[in-house]
Design a protein around this nucleic acid. Structure first.
Length: 395
DNA sequence: TGGAAGTCAATAAC
DNA sequence: GTTATTGACTTCCA
């Protein structure tokens, strides 16, 4: 079976190596040192958003306006008003590229183009990236999530499997080839078509090499592994945090993008899978939660995708799922976690209702569907019935 | 119409 | 409690 058999064999072993507990929970002093340099506080904060919750939304009007990613959901694309996505059709995700454009292009600049988007911007908070990233650097942020239980030693581990050692990365070069164009070693030009050079310049040669080996051609380098945990992190500390976030948003898994439109052309599925796996472990995010809230897929599906990522070229509609993963990875961590939280909220909760300017008629209809879904079934636009998680399905 | 892709959900395994 | 596995189902496409 040509490449696929071999390819699937690789991810298994690699994932195992990278994710097995002995490796993911380093206890060395060096790792603890990393933990003590800013990032851990943020890490714990992120996770606690997941757990926490309610007060987060209540206390932070930003929640619905911070960034489209935070309102990412499965049905309408990505707005809070459609956060009932978990109940809606799962088969055909809206092209994430259409959403991604809203993500990356001036959340406040064209509010009149998209109703959902408009809702996001009608609040009194613009939710600009700048604001978000600044927040990340604020010390108080850590306090918000102080109760996050994840052991911090784990936070000291290399954020990305890539950062665990160049050797393993180099070893993966050959086997990654089918998972994304990025696997082909490319030339230096693959580093950042979009103003990424200044960041890349700060990277070590080895990192650049890694990036080249894991990235999609024409796309930015696989700098996401830097995500605050690369060997420079202790030097840059918080100040570097936003820079890293910038890097991360621009390049995770090595997708190529078309002409700056933000549309993903190809994704290194294996790398994305590894990154997602690492992030889920890092923040102790259950697969089920991530699958449902971000991907609108089941836990089993996600597990399969993470363990057996098919090469991008082999994917058809399944690309959409990887696009979502990739987009999630691109978002600043704060927004990632917020998205995980918000997607769990009924759009018809008093909070959501108060915050949403969605048209009453549309809202009423959606609410009806929501209620039906809560009763065990929901009819998708295509006429199919979708089981609602947690509600017995009656055939 | 049959095969492939994608996914779900039950359940086993850890 | 979380993750991996797997059989069944739906959709798409040649």
């Amino acid at each position: 079976m040509e490449n696929i058999g071999n390819l699937h064999g690789v991810p298994h072993s690699q994932t195992g190596d990278l994710m097995s507990s002995p490796h993911v929970r380093p206890s060395s002093a060096s790792h603890r040192n990393l933990v003590s340099h800013g990032r851990p506080a943020m890490v714990s904060s992120m996770a606690s958003i997941l757990e926490g919750a309610g007060e987060y939304r209540a206390d932070h009007a930003l929640s619905g306006h911070l960034h489209p990613a935070m309102t990412m959901s499965c049905e309408s694309g990505m707005s809070l008003s459609s956060s009932y996505t978990t109940l809606t059709p799962l088969q055909h995700l809206p092209p994430i590229s259409t959403v991604s454009e809203k993500f990356h292009h001036h959340p406040h600049s064209h509010p009149h183009h998209h109703p959902a988007h408009q809702r996001l911007t009608t609040g009194n908070v613009s939710g600009s990236f700048t604001l978000m990233r600044d927040d990340r650097g604020l010390a108080p942020m850590g306090n918000l999530y102080g109760h996050y239980p994840k052991d911090m030693s784990g936070m000291g581990q290399p954020l990305s499997p890539l950062s665990n050692g160049l050797g393993s990365l180099h070893n993966t070069q050959q086997t990654l080839s089918a998972y994304g164009p990025g696997a082909h070693l490319s030339n230096d030009k693959m580093l950042s078509p979009g103003g990424f050079d200044s960041h890349a310049a700060m990277l070590s040669r080895s990192e650049e090499h890694l990036a080249r080996s894991l990235v999609g051609h024409g796309g930015p380098g696989m700098m996401s592994n830097l995500n605050g945990m690369h060997h420079h992190s202790h030097l840059h500390s918080q100040a570097n945090g936003s820079m890293l976030a910038e890097r991360e948003r621009q390049s995770v898994g090595g997708p190529g993008q078309s002409g700056g439109s933000g549309q993903v052309e190809d994704i290194n599925t294996k790398e994305v899978a590894q990154r997602i796996t690492a992030e889920l472990k890092r923040y102790s995010i259950p697969q089920a939660i991530f699958a449902q809230r971000i991907l609108c897929r089941s836990q089993g599906t996600l597990s399969d995708l993470l363990r057996n990522p098919k090469p991008w070229s082999k994917l058809k509609s399944g690309r959409e799922t990887f696009r979502r993963m990739w987009k999630w990875l691109q978002e600043p961590e704060f927004q990632r976690m917020s998205a995980l939280r918000l997607a769990d909220v009924s759009p018809f909760s008093p909070e959501a209702a108060a915050a949403s300017p969605v048209l009453p008629a549309r809202r009423k209809r959606a609410a009806s569907e929501w209620r039906r879904a809560r009763q065990g079934r929901v009819t998708s636009p295509s006429g199919r019935y979708r089981r609602v998680p947690g509600v017995p399905f009656k055939k």
